[in-house]
Design a binder for these strands. Structure first.
Lengths: 203, 203
DNA sequence: TAAATAAACAACGTGATGTTCATTATTTGT
DNA sequence: ACAAATAATGAACATCACGTTGTTTATTTA
């Protein structure tokens, strides 16, 4: 029974987080001062420094907290072994978009506009990339079209995040399954066939 | 002969730019103070405010100056009409990578690490996307795999930038032509064939 | 060479940061 | 229920960078 944290600490921390989330959405991270947070949380400015080193520290804590939810959701996605990642990509995309839907206002303030926090995007992309690496399957080496694994992972991760951000920015212009399916089809079969343009085969 | 700008202005502006570029590479944009710039440029801090509103204003001016070079280079790339953008993508990628090679240290400090300036990336991506839209060709509408144009443009732009940044970050792990060719092949034919994995055809 | 103007110099008010310290209030464990 | 522990408050302080306002000096232009 030794390790029970003081109730005051829990209360204070919680109200700081809540105030911070609200303020980020209202005026954007950069414009926030520690005093703003203290006012909103109805605590003394000093008390803030009792719990967080500074504003970036608080931001980091909050981002990690929320992204760990996303990570947990993604980790559960099954890895399809052959062909690599077509259904994996589709499943992960669905999972991500659904998770975002549940926390839309927050994701918006993190990913969109000039107030956006690019660190968040970077952290998110890392989560995606890790999952892609996990689901990687070596190619036949003697294929004439073989490409570098690193290049391909980077390609997939960036394209993935691009679509996600586009989807958030445009307020869900397409349903989740539609985006997931279109995305995985472009990735798999190439944009020529995906876009309905005839492909002449190479020899 | 009325509109000749004072030599002092030209001198001062030039030394401010030079100092700024150096400092950005040395300690990163955020860590720089106006006083730093003034010291390095050997001018009074006041003089800085005679030419730029503030630090972000200077940053913006510098970014636009350097990206306009890139833009000019890209604009010259021919648009291949059919099939859409395969060779366009390859050509643009080559152009971009070559341009970056010529200004590597600067691009590094803009695109890589924690000191990176994400605004720059966004501006760059916009240039790419504009070119892609310009080279766009409508698909056959009744194709079973048809995807949204907006989604596809976003897809291409993000993937493009992802590869570029990956290439800069890893210090040119592959030659320019190799990257360009691999990238355009993934985009065109899909990552399955590009990675050398067998593709079973859809019905 | 005189008028125009850019740059330097000095000073000021502002606002946010992070820290210190004494005091008050609350919680915990016995 | 109470004493000890500790969290939160409030006030103060030094620091730093910002952006602005004058006045004076130096340079450039015509």
């Amino acid at each position: 029974m030794n390790k029970k944290t003081d109730l005051r600490i829990l209360r204070t921390k919680q109200s700081i987080r809540k105030a911070f989330y609200e303020l980020v959405q209202e005026k954007g991270y950069e414009a926030i001062t520690v005093q703003d947070i203290a006012d909103r949380a109805m605590i003394n400015r000093n008390t803030f420094y009792l719990h967080y080193q500074n504003k970036p520290d608080l931001l980091d804590t909050c981002m990690n907290e929320l992204l760990s939810d996303l990570k947990d959701a993604i980790v559960l996605c099954p890895i399809s072994m052959n062909p690599f990642s077509i259904s994996l990509l589709e499943t992960v995309m669905q999972t991500v978009l659904e998770h975002i839907s549940l926390n839309m206002t927050f994701y918006r303030s993190m990913l969109i506009e000039e107030n956006r926090i690019y660190q968040f995007q970077a952290k998110m992309e890392k989560i995606i990339n890790d999952k892609l690496v996990e689901g990687w399957q070596p190619a036949q080496e003697n294929s004439p079209l073989a490409v570098s694994k690193e290049l391909l992972i980077e390609y997939l991760g960036s394209a993935f995040m691009g679509i996600v951000i586009w989807w958030v920015k445009n307020d869900k212009p397409l349903p989740v399954d539609e985006v997931s399916s279109q995305f995985s089809r472009i990735v798999a079969y190439g944009h020529l066939r995906a876009a309905g343009i005839a492909v002449e085969e190479e020899n």
